[in-house]
Design a protein around this nucleic acid. Structure first.
Lengths: 130, 130
DNA sequence: TAAGTGTTCTATTAGTATTAGTACACTATA
DNA sequence: TATAGTGTACTAATACTAATAGAACACTTA
């Protein structure tokens, strides 16, 4: 379900967090849907249960999932978007880094905007075909 | 010259690398210009010289600067854009992460594109006023 | 020669990621 | 009630990285 690159410098639990978010936005995971248990997911991905648990805990902190003791972990019915200043700056810094690197690849303004436009459509496209 | 956030989870040397790249794109640093020596920069930013050196070494690996023994470190006269598949994927992943987080803030496609457009103009705007 | 460069080491400290194992509390079900 | 399946909360060990500290060396410039 989620691609993990163990050679990446991005921590595995972060890759899980990002992967779940991406799957939701693409409509591969729907609100209310149950995620595999910590133990099952760990077996599926041949990881340690604690690594998966760390990812689930972060997802819950971000209100992306809801965990219920003894029942499981579920995709939140409602997204709880954070729009505070810290979050805005976080997103801004991510895009700034992307823009800088894109400039260094020789991309001009229009090429960057097209690049982002294509990516956005790629991610929300599947969502619309529900 | 470069803002360092010691509380950030982004390594300090990475912040220096990004900051130098950003300053170049904004025209605050020009090709051929000399950067402060490892020791001076370390004093300026109250960091260890080795931390600064690590940043300079990475900048040199990326062809952003040229170092000359006994003379100093200089902004490259010509950028050497990397456009290989690995670099493309790296940039793609950065933007994807930004898009996912933006969606979770409630941004729609158009709002994301405007956000990026403004950032791009903010970064290349200064460059054009040379 | 002397001062200012980059370069290359070793070593230490601190923090994080990951794995491993165990135990406990709760829920659902037979 | 008993059992299996959940999430949760610990401790511990290993490995890696970031950052600091200090020293020495090679080169350039004045």
């Amino acid at each position: 379900m989620i691609d993990i690159d163990v050679t990446s410098s991005t921590p595995i639990y972060t890759q899980i967090v990002d992967g779940v978010k991406e799957a939701i936005l693409k409509g591969l995971l729907e609100p209310g849907e149950k995620l595999p248990s910590v133990r099952d997911m760990a077996k599926l991905m041949t990881l340690n249960p604690n690594t998966v648990q760390k990812a689930y805990q972060q997802l819950e902190r971000e209100k992306v999932v809801v965990t219920v003791r003894g029942r499981g972990t579920f995709i939140s019915e409602e997204y709880k978007p954070r729009k505070d200043e810290d979050k805005m700056n976080e997103v801004k810094e991510i895009f700034k880094k992307g823009i800088i690197e894109a400039f260094y690849m020789g991309f001009d303004k229009q090429k960057i905007l097209n690049f982002v436009k294509n990516l956005v459509e790629e991610m929300e496209g599947l969502n619309k075909n529900d």
